[in-house]
Design a protein around this nucleic acid. Structure first.
Lengths: 223, 223
DNA sequence: TCTTTTTATATTGTATACAAAAATCATGGA
DNA sequence: TCCATGATTTTTGTATACAATATAAAAAGA
């Protein structure tokens, strides 16, 4: 293998997308032999991928029985966003108080890169800069464990994210929200920064609404 | 294998304990062949265990190079407790508003079982009932994802927990704190319940101080 | 003697082989 | 016809084999 970037992770991403896109339905059995042949890998790295998927809650591994698709319901997706919003809000609250001068510079740079990518209409660059901006806030929280957990939750939401161009000026709105959050941070207003972040994540979550249609599910009036 | 309870998890626990106890030092290379022979398993389940340990941050997996022990520093352990405290506080805040009648009953039962085990001087039963109590609060939050993440963090802290009998009336103090938290929940005072939970976790964290000595590390005046 | 290049050894990543358990199918009885 | 029991086939869990890379050791050159 010249992949260098391990096969299991690649397989994991593929199956992830299939689950998110609805190619697999909830409860579907993932046959090792069939998938191994289809994806041109042996069972060993495939089983590794299954474990990854299990750890992010997209499949259920039942001993001696196999891997079964666990497609998140809309309710569960909302719950993931609730957790995400709260984690990020906490990060930004801590970061407001603890951020270093260097981190502040990197953060400003990431925000500028977001802006530039938006102007240039380059969604890939926007995506990268946006991740860098959020990741920098996690780090600036000064709590490495919190940063890792938040990053993990971010990663878990990724497959359900619409990777589309800017529809209805959503990205522009995000930019404005970023600016407001950074302003609150610079002003040292941790509570406001946290509240703004919560709103920001909720705004993002609305872009996942399309998931609902592919799900054919009624939203429970919970959460 | 008649284990039924998968070997990888068992291996994972063993290595976990070795790391926590200081049998392995930070940075130690975990040789697959050597460990496989020592633990009487093949490389396959051993590598599974390595991945588990990687996912809970106790080893670093470097491609084509191997698994290396990543022993948490005291700072990191404190960070884990910070996250734990915040997650549990959030759980109890939500639970105060959302708990069902049935869950309230189970919660009360778990608290009584804690008490009974304490009176009987049965640490194993206390341990089980205590886990049940906390787990019930996670569930009662009504956010399944939050509950899972909190449970996960609880699991991660387990190897660093002193599994000792009641020293200096610590368990009795815990009991009182449980009672106060449940009182606040019953009174519908979410903020107070959350604050009390934070204090409760911080009390628990002090019992991990012994880790410091085995670590031979100076606590940074951070966090 | 020290550095660099080449060769040999050891270790990881992946594929395959084998054993045990589960699922499927078939047969037999009520 | 339906259910139960037993044989057959799949499928999973673990061990091993093989290929590719990294580590070490040795040899050559400065």
């Amino acid at each position: 293998m010249t992949d260098h970037l391990k096969t299991a992770a690649r397989i994991c991403s593929i199956i992830e997308q299939r689950i998110a896109s609805g190619a697999y339905e909830d409860g579907d059995k993932l046959s090792e032999m069939a998938l191994a042949e289809q994806l041109k890998v042996s069972r060993t790295p495939l089983r590794e991928a299954f474990q990854m998927l299990d750890s992010i809650g997209l499949v259920t591994l039942i001993p001696r029985r196999g891997a079964f698709v666990k497609r998140p319901t809309m309710t569960r997706l909302v719950e993931m966003f609730e957790v995400m919003a709260e984690l990020e809000a906490w990060c930004v609250r801590l970061a407001t108080k603890r951020i270093t001068a260097a981190q502040r510079l990197y953060l400003r740079q990431a925000a500028q890169d977001c802006d530039a990518a938006l102007q240039a209409g380059a969604p890939d660059r926007y995506y990268e800069a946006n991740n860098r901006l959020h990741g920098m806030i996690y780090e600036a929280s000064g709590n490495q464990v919190l940063a890792e957990e938040t990053q993990r939750m971010h990663r878990r939401l990724r497959p359900f994210r619409r990777q589309q161009l800017d529809v209805s000026g959503r990205l522009a709105k995000s930019m404005k929200e970023h600016a407001d959050i950074l302003d609150a941070m610079n002003a040292g207003d941790a509570d406001r920064a946290a509240d703004l972040m919560r709103l920001h994540i909720n705004t993002l979550s609305s872009t996942y609404d399309s998931y609902l249609t592919t799900l054919g599910e009624h939203v429970r009036d919970n959460a």
